[in-house]
Measured scan of single mutants.
Amino acid sequence: IEEVKKIVSEIQSKQLTRITINGNTYQVNSPEELVEYVRKVFS
């Protein structure tokens, strides 16, 4: 979970619009959307 928080804060600070998780690239339009992807991947 700490690793996830680190990734999320990194993305928020860079305002990235794409994230790659487990080889899948997602278009991310908002931090909320990012959190949803993270929940799916780590749930």
Score class of each variant (00 low, 15 high):
residue 1 I to T: 12
residue 19 I to F: 06
residue 10 E to P: 01
residue 17 T to P: 01
residue 9 S to D: 13
residue 29 N to R: 07
residue 30 S to E: 04
residue 30 S to I: 05
residue 33 E to Y: 03
residue 11 I to P: 02
residue 29 N to W: 06
residue 13 S to D: 13
residue 31 P to R: 01
residue 21 I to K: 00
residue 14 K to Y: 07
residue 7 I to H: 03
residue 12 Q to E: 11
residue 42 F to A: 02
residue 7 I to F: 07
residue 28 V to W: 09
residue 25 T to L: 10
residue 40 K to R: 11
residue 14 K to I: 05
residue 10 E to N: 05
residue 27 Q to F: 15
residue 29 N to I: 05
residue 21 I to W: 05
residue 12 Q to P: 02
residue 34 L to W: 04
residue 21 I to H: 02
residue 10 E to S: 04
residue 35 V to L: 07
residue 38 V to Q: 00
residue 13 S to L: 11
residue 10 E to T: 06
residue 32 E to W: 09
residue 39 R to Y: 14
residue 31 P to A: 06
residue 23 G to V: 02
residue 41 V to F: 13
residue 16 L to W: 05
residue 24 N to A: 10
residue 22 N to W: 09
residue 28 V to C: 15
residue 2 E to G: 08
residue 12 Q to M: 15
residue 21 I to D: 00
residue 21 I to E: 00
residue 21 I to G: 00
residue 18 R to H: 10
residue 3 E to C: 15
residue 34 L to M: 02
residue 27 Q to W: 07
residue 22 N to I: 06
residue 37 Y to V: 15
residue 27 Q to I: 11
residue 3 E to Q: 11
residue 9 S to A: 14
residue 30 S to V: 04
residue 34 L to N: 00
residue 15 Q to P: 02
residue 6 K to A: 11
residue 39 R to S: 05
residue 17 T to A: 04
residue 5 K to L: 14
residue 32 E to I: 05
residue 43 S to A: 13
residue 34 L to T: 00
residue 20 T to D: 04
residue 15 Q to D: 03
residue 42 F to N: 02
residue 1 I to P: 14
residue 26 Y to E: 01
residue 8 V to H: 01
residue 28 V to R: 15
residue 16 L to T: 03
residue 19 I to Y: 07
residue 40 K to E: 08
residue 26 Y to I: 14
residue 42 F to I: 04
residue 27 Q to M: 09
residue 42 F to D: 00
residue 26 Y to L: 10
residue 15 Q to G: 13
residue 5 K to P: 04
residue 37 Y to M: 15
residue 14 K to N: 09
residue 27 Q to Y: 08
residue 18 R to Q: 12
residue 26 Y to A: 04
residue 5 K to Y: 13
residue 35 V to Y: 04
residue 6 K to I: 08
residue 23 G to Q: 02
residue 28 V to L: 14
residue 40 K to S: 11
residue 19 I to E: 00
residue 11 I to Y: 02
residue 18 R to K: 13
residue 28 V to S: 15
residue 25 T to Y: 09
residue 22 N to A: 08
residue 31 P to G: 01
residue 22 N to G: 08
residue 1 I to A: 13
residue 9 S to W: 14
residue 19 I to P: 14
residue 38 V to W: 03
residue 39 R to A: 05
residue 35 V to T: 05
residue 27 Q to S: 12
residue 32 E to F: 07
residue 26 Y to V: 11
residue 1 I to L: 15
residue 40 K to W: 13
residue 39 R to Q: 13
residue 39 R to H: 13
residue 10 E to C: 14
residue 38 V to I: 13
residue 5 K to I: 10
residue 25 T to M: 15
residue 10 E to Y: 13
residue 9 S to Q: 15
residue 5 K to C: 15
residue 4 V to N: 02
residue 15 Q to I: 06
residue 7 I to E: 03
residue 33 E to M: 05
residue 18 R to M: 14
residue 33 E to N: 03
residue 35 V to W: 06
residue 12 Q to C: 14
residue 20 T to M: 04
residue 25 T to G: 02
residue 34 L to Y: 06
residue 11 I to H: 02
residue 22 N to K: 08
residue 12 Q to V: 13
residue 3 E to R: 10
residue 2 E to I: 14
residue 11 I to E: 01
residue 27 Q to P: 00
residue 14 K to M: 14
residue 43 S to V: 09
residue 2 E to M: 10
residue 38 V to R: 00
residue 11 I to F: 01
residue 25 T to I: 10
residue 42 F to V: 03
residue 12 Q to F: 15
residue 2 E to Y: 09
residue 15 Q to F: 08
residue 40 K to Q: 10
residue 2 E to P: 06
residue 38 V to G: 03
residue 15 Q to H: 10
residue 22 N to T: 02
residue 10 E to W: 12
residue 36 E to H: 08
residue 18 R to S: 14
residue 7 I to N: 02
residue 25 T to C: 13
residue 11 I to M: 04
residue 43 S to P: 04
residue 14 K to Q: 10
residue 5 K to N: 13
residue 37 Y to L: 15
residue 43 S to T: 08
residue 30 S to C: 04
residue 20 T to P: 01
residue 25 T to W: 06
residue 1 I to G: 10
residue 21 I to F: 08
residue 26 Y to R: 01
residue 41 V to I: 14
residue 17 T to L: 06
residue 7 I to R: 01
residue 37 Y to C: 12
residue 14 K to V: 04
residue 8 V to G: 01
residue 6 K to Y: 08
residue 2 E to K: 06
residue 30 S to G: 02
residue 8 V to C: 07
residue 25 T to N: 04
residue 23 G to P: 15
residue 16 L to N: 02
residue 36 E to L: 06
residue 22 N to R: 09
residue 22 N to L: 09
residue 27 Q to V: 15
residue 16 L to M: 05
residue 30 S to D: 06
residue 14 K to F: 06
residue 9 S to I: 11
residue 6 K to T: 07
residue 17 T to Y: 08
residue 12 Q to D: 03
residue 40 K to D: 07
residue 41 V to R: 04
residue 34 L to V: 03
residue 1 I to F: 13
residue 30 S to K: 05
residue 9 S to M: 15
residue 14 K to W: 13
residue 34 L to C: 02
residue 28 V to G: 15
residue 14 K to E: 05
residue 33 E to W: 04
residue 42 F to Y: 11
residue 7 I to A: 06
residue 24 N to T: 15
residue 31 P to H: 06
residue 22 N to P: 02
residue 39 R to I: 14
residue 12 Q to N: 08
residue 6 K to H: 08
residue 3 E to A: 13
residue 36 E to W: 06
residue 30 S to T: 13
residue 3 E to K: 11
residue 30 S to W: 05
residue 37 Y to W: 13
residue 16 L to F: 07
residue 7 I to W: 12
residue 23 G to R: 01
residue 7 I to T: 03
residue 34 L to S: 00
residue 24 N to K: 14
residue 24 N to Y: 14
residue 17 T to D: 04
residue 10 E to Q: 06
residue 30 S to A: 04
residue 18 R to W: 12
residue 25 T to K: 03
residue 13 S to F: 12
residue 22 N to C: 14
residue 36 E to T: 04
residue 12 Q to G: 04
residue 23 G to L: 03
residue 27 Q to N: 07
residue 42 F to T: 03
residue 36 E to N: 06
residue 13 S to V: 08
residue 26 Y to W: 14
residue 2 E to D: 12
residue 16 L to V: 07
residue 28 V to I: 08
residue 28 V to M: 15
residue 23 G to W: 12
residue 32 E to R: 04
residue 29 N to C: 11
residue 25 T to H: 11
residue 11 I to V: 03
residue 38 V to A: 02
residue 4 V to A: 09
residue 33 E to C: 08
residue 22 N to V: 02
residue 39 R to K: 12
residue 34 L to E: 00
residue 42 F to K: 00
residue 3 E to H: 10
residue 17 T to G: 02
residue 37 Y to D: 01
residue 19 I to K: 00
residue 29 N to G: 15
residue 23 G to Y: 02
